[in-house]
Deep mutational scan, measured.
Amino acid sequence: SLEELLKLARHALRHGEEIHVLDRVITDEHEIKRLIEELERLI
């Protein structure tokens, strides 16, 4: 769900981890922040 993805993204950002989204691995902090902003808009 989007909520789950948002939780994962926030966790990854906090802990400096990578996040796997739709067969992509996002490691860049700015990309993760952008993902979080997009998800928050959708929810």
Rank of each mutant, 00 (worst) to 15 (best):
L35T: 02
R41Y: 09
D28I: 06
G16D: 04
D28L: 11
I19M: 13
H15D: 06
L5V: 05
L6A: 02
E18H: 14
E17C: 09
L42C: 04
E17K: 15
K7F: 10
R14P: 01
R41V: 07
I36A: 02
V21D: 03
D28V: 06
H20K: 14
L8Q: 13
E37K: 12
H15Y: 14
T27Q: 09
E18G: 15
L13I: 06
E29H: 13
I32N: 00
V25L: 09
D28T: 12
I32Y: 02
V25R: 05
L35P: 00
I43C: 05
L8H: 07
E38V: 13
E18K: 12
L22E: 11
E18R: 08
R41E: 06
D23I: 03
A9L: 15
H20C: 10
E29R: 15
L22Y: 14
E3K: 11
L22H: 13
E40C: 04
E31H: 06
R24C: 05
L2I: 10
K7T: 10
L22C: 05
E4T: 09
E37C: 05
E17A: 12
R14I: 15
I32W: 02
R41F: 09
G16P: 03
L13Q: 04
A12T: 02
L5I: 08
E18Y: 11
E37H: 11
A9C: 02
H30W: 14
H30F: 12
S1L: 12
E37G: 08
R14V: 15
R41P: 01
A12M: 02
T27N: 10
S1H: 14
L13T: 01
R34I: 11
R24Q: 09
L35F: 13
K33Y: 09
E3T: 10
G16T: 03
L22T: 07
R34L: 13
E4H: 10
L2W: 11
E18A: 15
L2A: 06
D23F: 03
A9K: 00
I26A: 04
H15E: 09
E18C: 06
L42A: 08
H15N: 12
L13E: 03
L42K: 08
I43W: 05
I43P: 01
R34P: 01
D23G: 11
R10M: 14
A9H: 02
I26H: 04
E29C: 07
H11P: 00
D23T: 03
E38C: 07
E4K: 10
R41H: 09
D23Q: 04
L8C: 05
I19A: 04
H15L: 08
R41C: 04
I36K: 01
R34F: 09
V25G: 03
H11S: 06
L6V: 05
I36M: 03
I32S: 00
L5H: 02
E37P: 00
I36D: 00
L5P: 00
E38M: 14
R34D: 10
I19F: 13
I36H: 00
L39G: 00
L35D: 00
A12I: 02
I36P: 00
E3V: 12
L22Q: 11
V25Y: 08
E31G: 07
E18M: 10
H20V: 14
L35R: 02
R10Y: 15
I19P: 01
E17R: 10
L35Q: 01
K7Y: 10
I19Q: 01
H20Q: 12
E4L: 11
E40W: 06
L42E: 06
I19L: 15
E40Q: 08
D28R: 07
I26T: 03
L2R: 04
E18L: 07
L22K: 11
L6I: 06
K33P: 01
I19S: 01
L8G: 05
E4I: 09
K7P: 00
L8P: 00
D23P: 01
L8I: 11
E38T: 13
R14M: 15
I43R: 03
H30Y: 13
I32V: 05
L8K: 13
A9W: 14
K7S: 10
I43T: 04
R41K: 11
L42Y: 07
K7H: 11
S1A: 14
E37D: 11
R10H: 13
L2K: 04
H15A: 09
E31L: 07
L13H: 04
H15G: 05
T27R: 11
S1W: 15
T27A: 11
A12H: 02
V21C: 07
T27D: 07
D23Y: 02
L2N: 04
E18S: 15
E3S: 09
I32G: 01
E29L: 13
L42H: 05
R34H: 10
K7I: 12
E4W: 11
E38A: 12
H30I: 12
V25Q: 05
A9P: 00
K7R: 14
H20D: 05
E40D: 05
H11C: 05
G16C: 03
I19V: 13
D28F: 07
R24F: 09
L5Q: 04
D23M: 03
R10K: 14
A12Y: 02
L22V: 08
D23A: 03
D28W: 06
R34Q: 14
K33R: 15
L22D: 13
L6N: 00
S1T: 12
L35H: 03
A12W: 02
L35S: 00
T27E: 07
I36E: 00
R24K: 12
E37Y: 11
K7L: 12
T27Y: 08
E4R: 10
R14Y: 13
E4P: 03
R24W: 10
E17F: 13
E38P: 00
S1K: 12
L39F: 04
I32P: 00
L8M: 11
R10N: 10
T27F: 07
E40S: 06
E29F: 13
V25S: 04
I32E: 00
E17W: 12
L42I: 10
R24G: 06
K7G: 07
I43D: 02
R10P: 00
L35A: 02
S1Q: 13
I32A: 03
L6M: 04
E4S: 09
I43N: 03
E38L: 13
V25D: 05
G16W: 04
V25W: 10
E17H: 15
R24T: 08
G16N: 09
D28M: 09
E40P: 00
L6S: 01
I26P: 02
L39E: 00
E37L: 12
I26Y: 15
I26G: 02
L22G: 15
K7V: 10
V21Q: 04
E40K: 07
E31Y: 05
I19W: 06
I36T: 01
G16L: 04
E29S: 14
D28G: 15
K33S: 09
E18N: 11
E38G: 06
R41W: 10
H11A: 08
E3P: 06
H15I: 06
H15Q: 07
K7A: 15
H11G: 04
E4V: 09
E17I: 14
L5K: 03
L39V: 05
R41Q: 09
E38R: 12
L35K: 01
R10A: 07
E40Y: 06
H30D: 14
E40N: 05
L13S: 03
L6W: 03
L35V: 06
E17D: 08
E38S: 10
E40V: 10
H30Q: 14
L39Q: 00
E31R: 04
H30R: 13
H11V: 05
L35Y: 10
R10E: 12
A12K: 02
E17S: 13
H11R: 07
H20L: 11
D23R: 01
L35I: 08
K7Q: 13
L22W: 15
I43K: 03
D28Q: 10
E4Q: 11
L13G: 01
L35G: 00
H20T: 13
T27P: 02
E29N: 08
V21I: 14
R10Q: 15
V25N: 05
L6G: 00
V21F: 15
L8W: 06
R14S: 14
R34Y: 08
D28E: 12
R14D: 14
D23H: 05
S1Y: 15
D28K: 10
I43L: 13
G16A: 06
E18W: 10
T27M: 07
L13W: 05
L6E: 01
K33A: 11
V21W: 15
A12N: 02
E3M: 12
E40G: 04
I36L: 03
R10F: 11
E29T: 13
L42M: 11
E18D: 09
L35N: 00
L42P: 00
H11L: 07
I32D: 00
E31N: 06
E3N: 08
H15R: 07
R14Q: 15
S1E: 12
I32T: 02
S1D: 14
I26R: 01
E38Q: 13
E3I: 13
R34T: 10
E29K: 15
K33D: 04
A9Q: 01
D23V: 03
R41M: 09
R34K: 14
L5W: 08
L39R: 00
I19T: 02
R24M: 11
R34G: 08
L39K: 00
S1R: 13
E17M: 14
E31Q: 09
H20F: 10
A12C: 03
